[in-house]
């Protein structure tokens, strides 16, 4: 899965999709000079435990990767920790795959 910040404090998509119970890698490109990261929670909001997160980095051209195993089917909240109100989205985990 790939997601980027190409302009100011935004993600280029607010939705990521992955199959359930599968090891996946998120590649996050920060192509701005503003510090950002991606922080994925194991639930619908930021009160849930962390599922995966990258370091906060500035760009441009800075790519961070994080590998994790997706949970069961459902919708999972993600955000930038530095801009938690402005940069948010949903990881949609679909059924049909798994061990």
């Amino acid at each position: 899965m790939q997601i980027s910040s190409l302009e100011d404090s935004t993600f280029d998509t607010d939705t990521l999709t992955a199959p359930a119970n599968t090891q996946v890698t998120v590649q996050y490109l920060n192509d701005t000079a503003i510090p950002h990261n991606i922080h994925i929670y194991n639930g619908p909001d930021d009160t849930a435990p962390t599922l995966a997160q990258t370091d906060v980095v500035t760009g441009p051209g800075n790519t961070q990767s994080v590998t994790f195993t997706t949970p069961g089917a459902g919708q999972y909240f993600f955000r930038c920790d530095v801009h938690p109100l402005q940069m948010v989205g949903t990881l949609v985990v679909t059924s049909g795959a798994g061990p």
């Binding site: 404090s9 530095v82 801009h83 938690p84 109100l85 402005q86």
Partner: peptide
Amino acid sequence: LDHTTGKLNWYQ
């Protein structure tokens, strides 16, 4: 911080 909720908007 958002003035109505106290939610973090950004930090530096």
